[in-house]
Simulated scan of single mutants.
Amino acid sequence: MSTYTVEDPRKVTTRRLIEMKAKGEKIAMLTSYDYSMARLVDEAGMDAILVGDSAANVMAGYGTTLPITLDQMIYHAQCVTRGVKRALVVCDMPFGTYQGNSTQALASAIRIMKESNAEAVKLEGGEEIIESIRRIISAGIPVMGHLGLTPQSINKFGTYNVRAREESEARKLIADA
């Protein structure tokens, strides 16, 4: 018996998210790293659940997201997908698995999809990772972009402060989107 508190208990897919956006419906998303939290978040009615590379900070105690590995992200995504019935599960691609090498990006995304049962991957960045995005999408893997506050770029910016306050940076953010 389902314990969903949402009006529409059907499985959320990328198609459903597109339909929701077209209708102007709000889309709710939270982050989970394990089975128990994923079940709670899913039953609360979230439309999407992100398995974030922030697991490096929250679960492993690192000061940045950079140390988490692809194997560790797949493990967390496996835990989350086992706890989810309704929400779309998106898995973060960790630092070093997609930047600068679109072949490696595709291989990493395929591993995530095959080994974790996630339904999409998330990458940080814009124009500089476009080849990786194109290659992943060409394989039929949905990609969620992440712009603005980009924790994987902590060493570039030296802080987690809000980005795009300067006009030139704001223009780049819009162009990337």
Rank of each mutant, 00 (worst) to 15 (best):
E128L: 07
Q104P: 01
L88Y: 10
G52P: 13
A177N: 00
T65N: 08
K21L: 12
Q78I: 05
S132F: 11
M73S: 09
G126V: 04
L17N: 10
R39S: 09
R86N: 01
L70S: 02
A87W: 11
V121A: 10
T159N: 15
M1A: 12
E167W: 02
D92I: 08
T150E: 07
R15T: 13
Y75E: 06
C91N: 07
D42G: 04
L40K: 12
K21Y: 07
A118M: 01
V80Q: 07
T31V: 11
Y4G: 11
R171N: 05
T3E: 02
A139L: 13
Y160H: 08
Q78A: 08
G145D: 13
G83P: 10
Q78P: 03
V90T: 12
E7I: 12
S2P: 12
A38S: 14
D47Y: 14
Y35A: 00
T13K: 03
T69R: 08
A28F: 15
L40Q: 07
D92A: 06
M37R: 04
I112C: 11
I154Q: 06
G45H: 08
K156E: 14
M93V: 10
E7G: 14
R86V: 01
T69S: 15
M46G: 01
M73E: 08
T3W: 12
M1D: 02
A38G: 10
I129G: 05
T31D: 10
L106G: 13
S102M: 02
A44R: 05
